[in-house]
């Protein structure tokens, strides 16, 4: 290539300031959680910024997945599970963990994708449409439009548009995971929860999902739990570090990974955590 090297002027970006109320999609306040007698979360408080990716990191057993699962009340399925405190969904301030709020209503507003792809034993189309049917959508053309939109948002439309009636199990692992993301996106949730969404995928499939997550933040607020520190650094805007059920540090991802203020955070992200 003989073209002269063209170097664009560096764009000067100012970090988005934290915490103006208008940018908060959800606010966790003094959240405690018990699995029966075991207290897994201790007074966790943090904001979830609108249209941003928030990563929750920490060693195994630190409570990060427990915290994520509080957002859509999965714990309600376990006997003895108990919440105190609040996760308020903005702008209305609906407390997602309040006993008076129906968990089904919560799950209509908060989508979730798990560690291993878990497509339903149905066609690709039916997988994505299933959440719409639950919400009472019956108009065929509307459902088709929403399915196509979700598959495009999940960056898998080009790969499946000519085989929508094929079983979802025919897709590769990475494609299945993007299909699950499309399924979660179709009902247009206010929050999308991702619980280690790439831990079962190869590096190429992981890169596609990471790219997708970064793009998704334009449309939806994302909270991701990951063991992969590089992944948290690459794709998130804010990062929360947890240890033994407590939030140790929360801040802009750039700050957390370049100059954390708490020694415990530094020890964890630099591999000194003994």
């Amino acid at each position: 290539m003989n073209e002269a090297l063209h170097i664009a002027s560096p764009a000067v970006t100012t970090p988005t300031p934290l915490s103006p109320e208008a940018t908060i999609r959800a606010r966790v306040s003094n959240l405690d959680f018990w699995y029966s007698k075991f207290q897994a979360l201790h007074s966790v408080s943090m904001p979830i910024h609108n249209n941003k990716v928030t990563a929750i990191i920490g060693p195994s057993g630190c409570g990060k997945s427990t915290l994520l699962r509080c957002f859509n009340r999965i714990h309600d399925l376990y006997p003895g599970a108990r919440y105190e405190g609040a996760i308020e969904l903005m702008p209305d301030g609906l407390n997602l963990v309040s006993r008076s709020v129906d968990p089904i209503l919560v799950r209509l507003m908060v989508g979730m994708v798990f560690q291993k792809p878990n497509p339903f034993p149905k066609s690709i189309f039916e997988n994505v449409a299933s959440g719409l049917y639950v919400r009472g959508l019956r108009n065929r053309s509307e459902v088709e439009g929403r399915v196509e939109k979700a598959l495009k948002q999940a960056a898998i439309w080009d790969e499946v548009q000519d085989r929508l009636k094929k079983p979802a199990y025919e897709l590769s692992g990475g494609q299945q995971q993007r299909l699950c993301i499309a399924r979660a996106l179709a009902p247009e949730p206010k929050l999308l929860l991702l619980d280690e969404p790439t831990s079962a995928l190869d590096p190429i499939a992981t890169a596609k999902i990471e790219s997708l997550i970064a793009d998704l933040a334009h449309d939806v607020t994302v909270v991701i739990v990951t063991h992969n520190m590089g992944q948290a650094a690459r794709i998130s805007d804010q990062t929360a570090f947890m240890h033994m059920g407590k939030l140790i540090e929360f801040g802009e991802t750039e700050q957390i990974f370049t100059n954390p203020t708490v020694d415990q955070t530094r020890d964890y992200i630099t591999g000194r955590f003994g």
Binding site: M229, P260, T270
Partner: peptide
């Protein structure tokens, strides 16, 4: 080593 924080500095 893909270092972070002070390990990267």
């Amino acid at each position: 080593r893909q270092p972070m924080a002070d390990d990267l500095r």
